[in-house]
Structure formats: structure tokens, C-alpha cells
């Protein structure tokens, strides 16, 4: 298993966020830890770039519920409109 590229890491992170939606809120640190556990050769900076890619292309969004989490874009429940 070779070192994954930034888009590949972003895809794995996206899958983790998708699977946890509605069950558990994941933080950037949770995704980084999971990736680094699976690929010890991947550094934090690379994980950061993968997260940035997910945000910049709109596949994920930040959410605040007492702390900052990463979620899939969805209609804001609190907006109620």
C-alpha cells in the first residue's frame, strides 16, 4: 500500500464524514488522527491540505456545536425556513 495522494486522502476523509453523519460529529483532528493511524507516513500538513480541498470544493462544510466539526453540506435545521 503506497502513500496516498492528497485527493485520495480527501476522499477517505469524505467517506468517514459521510458514514458518521447523524451518528457522530467528527473534528478535523479526528480525521487527521484516523488517516495518520492508517498511513503513518502521512504528515499533518498533508492532512490539512486534504481538508482544505474538501472545504474549497464544497464537499464538506464546517459546523459549530460548542466546538468546530466537519459535516456534509445540508439544510440548516436551526434556520427553520
Amino acid at each position: 500500500m503506497g502513500t496516498p495522494s492528497i485527493p485520495e486522502i480527501a476522499e477517505e476523509m469524505f467517506q468517514m464524514v459521510s458514514e458518521s453523519m447523524g451518528k457522530k460529529n467528527l473534528k478535523a483532528g479526528d480525521l487527521t488522527k484516523a488517516i495518520r493511524q492508517k498511513y503513518p507516513e502521512v504528515d499533518r500538513k498533508t492532512c490539512k491540505l486534504a481538508l482544505r480541498e474538501l472545504m474549497d470544493n464544497g464537499r464538506c462544510v464546517y459546523a459549530y456545536f460548542g466546538g468546530s466539526y466537519i459535516q456534509l453540506p445540508h439544510k440548516e435545521g436551526a434556520a427553520n425556513d
Binding site: R52, M55, D56, G58, V61, Y62, A63, Y64, F65, G66, S68, Q71, P73, H74, E76, G77, A78, A79
Partner: peptide, 13 residues
């Protein structure tokens, strides 16, 4: 009500 996903593109703060 406080919080949620509202923000501008690419920013989390």
C-alpha cells in the same frame, strides 16, 4: 439559537 453550519465558502470561522 446559536451555532450551525452557516459561514462563507472555505472558511470555518
Amino acid at each position: 439559537k446559536h451555532g450551525g453550519i452557516v459561514g462563507v465558502m472555505g472558511y470555518g470561522g
